[in-house]
């Protein structure tokens, strides 16, 4: 019997002692944390992608609380959760709801194997950064997609993959959270986060070639040659021309699609618009084969993913 008593008393004593130690420690070393940070963290997606620019979701929650105390949460956006998440955070912190337009990564290059002939064969580590060191790379274009998939490897949502047929990166809009990891990694700065637009419809110049027209024309069938026709035709001053390259400002663009028709190269794309009536398609000249292929291909694919 004694043995049992001794064991019970000894263990009890040890347990009590440790409990006292833990109690003292928890009081003495307590770290005060704003309870709202935990609340905000709860509504965040917990993907810890860093897309917001902060080290993980906890960091972002801290920044939100700090900003709310300072007055406004403007400029803070969780790209993964988007507007609904931001609304929840605003509610917790008693802030006005700020609506930011949802964005999506757009690969501004359409230099598929067909449109942009390969002039050399790359042999080495399949990494865009490695190929970049060889100058223009496999194609003659010094600006376009290298197709080695650095963007696909950093995408945590599996939203980018390299299409083996075109040799190009493609974005799955349904999965893209606009975290911006691909934008940062792309050594040629091709990927841009653009507003999704109403019904996911948007206009974009799918080319970043800043070479002069003659060179751009030679290296790729669907390159922007900086002719400026789109600038002239745009009624809203949404298109600017900078070093031989057109750029559509998504804020100003009214989606009238005039620039698309005006572009002689098929570099401007209307994304996710319903297919045009056959009559309009016939009018386009035979010289724009590349453009037709691209247009036909993109909407049909994106509609599937959006459905």
């Amino acid at each position: 019997m004694d043995v049992i008593w001794i064991a019970v008393v000894a263990l009890g004593a040890v347990g009590f002692l440790l409990a006292v130690v833990l109690f003292v420690a928890s009081k003495k070393f307590a770290v005060h944390e704003d309870p709202r940070i935990a609340q905000v963290s709860e509504v965040l997606p917990q993907a810890n992608c860093g897309g917001c620019g902060y080290p993980g979701c906890a960091g972002f929650a801290g920044a939100c609380v700090k900003a709310a105390d300072a007055g406004t949460m403007e400029g803070l956006l969780c790209p993964v959760g988007g507007a609904p998440t931001m609304e929840n955070i605003a509610k917790i912190l008693g802030q006005e709801i700020i609506s930011a337009a949802p964005k999506v990564a757009v690969i501004r290059c359409n230099g598929t194997c067909e449109n942009r002939p390969r002039v050399a064969e790359f042999d080495g580590v399949r990494s865009c950064r490695v190929q970049l060191m060889l100058g223009t790379g496999e194609t003659g274009c010094a600006f376009g997609c290298l197709g080695c998939g650095d963007c696909a490897s950093v995408c945590m949502f599996g939203a980018i993959h390299i299409n083996p047929e075109t040799g190009m990166a493609e974005v799955d809009e349904a999965k893209c959270t606009a975290c911006g990891a691909c934008v940062k990694i792309c050594p040629r700065r091709i990927i841009e986060l653009r507003p999704k637009g109403p019904k996911s419809r948007r206009m974009a110049v799918l080319c970043v070639n800043r070479d002069k027209g003659a060179v751009a024309n030679k290296v790729c069938k669907v390159s922007c040659i900086g002719c400026g026709k789109c600038v002239k035709v745009c009624a809203f001053e949404a298109i600017t021309m900078n070093s031989n390259l057109a750029y559509i400002d998504p804020e100003k663009c009214k989606l009238c699609r005039k620039c698309e028709d005006a572009c002689p190269r098929g570099a401007i794309h209307a994304i996710n618009f319903p297919a045009r009536k056959p009559k309009a398609a016939e009018e386009t000249s035979s010289a724009q084969v590349g453009k037709k292929v691209a247009i036909d291909e993109r909407p049909s694919k994106s509609i599937e993913t959006n459905a």
Binding site: R118, V119, A120, E121, F122, D123, G124, V130, M133, L134, G137, E138
Partner: peptide, 9 residues
């Protein structure tokens, strides 16, 4: 060009 050269580092 007749044949594509191989490029590597």
């Amino acid at each position: 060009m007749a044949n594509k050269f191989i490029i590597s580092l």
